[in-house]
Design a protein around this nucleic acid. Structure first.
Lengths: 347, 347
DNA sequence: TTGTAGGCGTTATCAG
DNA sequence: CTGATAACGCCTACAA
């Protein structure tokens, strides 16, 4: 029979001990050139392709895999550019320790791997749901280090966030300083599952999603009576619909604060389609600081959030946790970016 | 000391054997209710969270993880909607066997997991590079089943593809049947690293990327002398630039065949910005059949490719390979979708 | 239905 | 620099 060769086979053939052969591959201890060659030659003969990662991870107690919990199906998850960039940051920062990313889903119905069954060393949650709470316990009791990005998994779980409230407040101030008074807000989803809706005046709107709520509060401090339109998802098309609502009626706003750049891009299009000049007749702000594909020559006035850094910070926090060091929460600030979609309020 | 409890600890505490305890968790054999309760109670006492996946995967010889090799960094990989949807299909179809997706990168410099070191049971390559060839051998000699999506890893590696050539030919025929003669092509990247360029007449252009080449051939069969503009990436902005090139000069085309919907969307915007009416003055076709965010009320005339099915097919092929059954290559066909961006050639 | 026994392939430790 | 030894934690025949 020809089962796959193991390190023991290689060692035997090379005439060395298994531990020596192991060391040839791990490189953790110096090995004589000649011995190394013998081992490698034997491996080549046998068609041995290196230590089995499964066995190694049992022995080491580490799989070199970090789980990343994304909300729903991959295609809607990855439609969010901030999420994507954040994940890239996580990937980048954990790669330095040789680790990779296993996609996990926050969905009890999902047949794939879960926090309870996946061979992961640590896990990062990105904008996680309450539904997740159960599996969270699993991870916790299994001793898997966790980090949450833009979410809350209770105390003693480090959170990586941005200060959305302050950022949105800053944008709102900017808009007010330009003299705008009739202002509308276009928000991200208020809850994890809502369709679009005109939600009324700002001071009366409740949002259960953290990010939405914070940004709403930031804007409402400055414009408590702004009209609010909430959307189902952060897409250009949803923004467009919101914009049509706002620009369709008589009393149209002179400024629209959208809670994401995607939404803002849609609002922008709606404004242009309605024959409005931007920013002469309508000012529009976004949020995120991503490059929205397809709105040139406009550049949104927005708050740029350091998504890549968020991801990296999460990765580093996980690394610390894995090394049994304490990891703290971190709150990033955003940076004001003045584009050409805001200007003085029309007289 | 208080190391993490193991199944053996639980068994001991419950007064049963380790194998019985194991069976309680795996459910592969019937266990008396009372015994089960005892075990579960003991587990709860000890804070045991279930079998360690690392140990289980060594024992079983399966990790329940499928690697997916994406080209470069995650954010550009996931900027491609087809790739995303395809991955979703893979994820979906392997989830039924409890497996998940580990992101691998096709980059020798990358510090993260590789085909040679990751604890994966199988791997799917999406649009892979020649650079990959080396690591491919690693996977091969390790006996890891492989499937390639839109690429070529040599014979005996099943390929999942679409018939781009026929699809593009079909679009070209449609355009010709509308009477167009002055036609331009906007292509995907010709090689893995090119900037945009006007590449000359169709019959003279060489493309080294499979998908690009096939689509080019399909169009060139019908329009051998079409002007070709190649782009650096499949984005709206790149399409826009290409469009500006095409609509800027005197002899502008009456129809533009773009090799992706994203590019087509950019071309569309460029046309509109140039004051051209679509489709009265310019017809535009895309490729992919994705919903491009932000071009309403236009709907591209395009070929819809079954990206989700591609992913599923890849996942199923992997499942068969894992079960030691043969898996065949599969070539999907695309479906013509008539939108409102094509019309009769202007007289 | 439950228990016994043996090993999955590797690597850490320590002695030589 | 190399080798012997002992787990890592679980699963699965097989026997009782």
């Amino acid at each position: 029979m020809t089962r796959k060769p193991t390190l023991a086979d290689v060692a035997r053939r090379a005439g060395v001990s298994a531990s020596t052969a192991s060391v040839v591959y791990s490189g953790k201890v110096a090995v004589a050139e000649t011995t190394k060659d013998k081992v490698l030659a034997a491996a080549a003969d046998l068609g041995y392709a290196g230590p089995d990662p499964r066995a190694a991870s049992l022995r080491r107690g580490r799989s070199g895999i970090v789980g990343v919990v994304v909300g729903s199906d991959l295609r809607s998850a990855f439609a969010d550019p901030i999420l994507t960039v954040t994940m890239d940051g996580v990937a980048e920062s954990i790669a330095s320790s040789g680790a990779g990313i296993l996609l996990l889903r926050d969905d009890p119905e999902w047949g794939g791997p879960t926090l309870a069954t996946a061979p992961i060393d640590a896990v990062a949650l990105i904008g996680c749901n309450p539904t997740l709470r159960d599996s969270l316990d699993a991870a916790r009791s299994r001793g898997i280090p966790m980090v949450v990005i833009e979410g809350d998994a209770g105390p003693d779980v480090p959170q990586i966030t941005i200060d959305s409230l302050e950022a949105q407040r800053q944008l709102a101030r900017h808009v007010r300083s330009l003299g705008h008074e009739r202002v509308a807000l276009v928000t991200l989803p208020l809850s994890r599952r809502t369709g679009m809706s005109v939600a009324g005046a700002a001071h009366a709107v409740q949002a259960e999603v953290d990010v939405t709520r914070e940004r709403l509060e930031g804007a409402r401090e400055i414009f408590p009576d702004a009209v609010v339109v909430s959307t189902a998802r952060s897409t250009i098309d949803n923004g467009y619909e919101a914009g049509r609502l706002l620009f369709g009626s008589g009393e149209r706003p002179t400024a629209v604060l959208a809670q994401s750049d995607m939404l803002a891009a849609g609002v922008l299009r709606a404004a242009l389609d309605a024959g409005l000049r931007v920013p002469e007749e309508v000012s529009i702000t976004g949020f995120d600081g991503i490059t929205v594909d397809g709105i040139a020559p406009y550049r949104l006035t927005t708050m740029a959030q350091p998504a890549l850094d968020k991801g990296r910070a999460a990765g580093e926090a996980l690394a610390r946790l894995l090394a049994d060091e304490p990891a703290a929460s971190f709150r990033f600030t955003c940076e004001f970016v003045e584009g050409n979609t805001t200007g003085p309020a029309p007289v």
